[in-house]
Design a protein around this nucleic acid. Sequence first.
DNA 1: GCAAAAGTGTTACGCGTACACCCATGG
DNA 2: CCATGGGTGTACGCGTAACACTTTTGC
Lengths: 222, 222
Amino acid sequence: MQYCYQYPHPAVTTDIVVFTIQNQQLDALFVRRRNAPHQGQWALPGGFVDIDEDIDTCAQRELFEETNVSNLYLEQLYTFGQHNRDPRERVITVAYYALIPRDRLQPKAGSDAQEVNWFPINQLPELAFDHDLIIKKALERIAAKAHYSTIAFQFLPPEFTLPELQEVYQILRNETLDKRNFRKWIQSLDCLEETGDVRRNGSHRPAKLYRAKHPDVVEIIK
Amino acid sequence: MQYCYQYPHPAVTTDIVVFTIQNQQLDALFVRRRNAPHQGQWALPGGFVDIDEDIDTCAQRELFEETNVSNLYLEQLYTFGQHNRDPRERVITVAYYALIPRDRLQPKAGSDAQEVNWFPINQLPELAFDHDLIIKKALERIAAKAHYSTIAFQFLPPEFTLPELQEVYQILRNETLDKRNFRKWIQSLDCLEETGDVRRNGSHRPAKLYRAKHPDVVEIIK
DNA sequence: GCAAAAGTGTTACGCGTACACCCATGG
DNA sequence: CCATGGGTGTACGCGTAACACTTTTGC
């Protein structure tokens, strides 16, 4: 079966930069390509937009196929449309980024037999296509958002401690923060509530647990 | 001649929100549709991406075709990809916005016989497709940028006075600013230089003329 | 009792904001 | 000389940034 048009049409894909934080590092998810071009190289998860599928829905679907997790924070990033970015045919890709909390990482990410892997964002392998550009843009975006939104909560489980939250902000903003000032700031946003519980992990004072008042919305602050 | 594919392909367009400031108002440019669907309604300028044309280039081309002006500030805004946003076929549009200074407005914008018109953004006509959504997103973007960038310069001729610059900021941010505080702020950015000349317009003290130190870059500030 | 991380207040400085009068020109 | 808009400085308050010690636990 063939689909014919009076004028040439590009193919459209979505690619998703999936971020998580583990081992004190920001990691992104990649899939090893099994076919040419760029066979064997690592690439962002993604794929073609179905003809009657919204592009947001497509991104959600691709994301689920690679991570087995749904309902993640997902935001459109930028559209990459250099005419020669794919040697096979004209492909325009709408890039998204998604954030996945540690506690929802699957033991083996990926539903099919594909080889997938997390890489720390400062030790990336060589990437297929223009995916290095996409990553770069995604990093800029989340670093910026870490300054004026509650995006960091999306990396954490529903209950977390203030030192954990501070660590996420530090990794995203790539700077160390003063503990007292950070606490004063985050408390003043009135977006946290104590669970009443504590977390004990080590021979030291236990940390109080908090949860976000509105865990599903990324609030713009300041 | 037909172009055939193994899988259905969407059409891809770019639409451009062209902004200018005239008569103390922010205006956007629209084209009246001559064909169904939405025949007779106003729509954003835009059109199909050629198969071997970068999407940025396409936006530039469409922009030039409607305004006869090139080398404008042009930035990608967002990609709109609801599957049913165009009743004819699947069309994904990559929206851009452009800023055009007063002094480069053509007497009759538009190169061909199409009916084109500027509308103040708070008196928009009913728009075709989802173009109201696109405008809304573009307005949010430039209002935000007016707070943390030198975007306002792009609305002005190469030489301008401080009252003129302040007016642009006020329109974009939709608030009045204190004259002395505005001047202190803008001078502190070290992005202006006096031309040494003045502009006389009326029976009052003439205003000093300034130019941007880097007229082609929109600097991120603060 | 000691090591290790959690928790907690105060001070200083800079920036943003509020505010009123003189200046230069054209008619 | 008068109307019109251009141009200028200061004071106050708030928010950001710097900074050190006590608390609680596990071993």
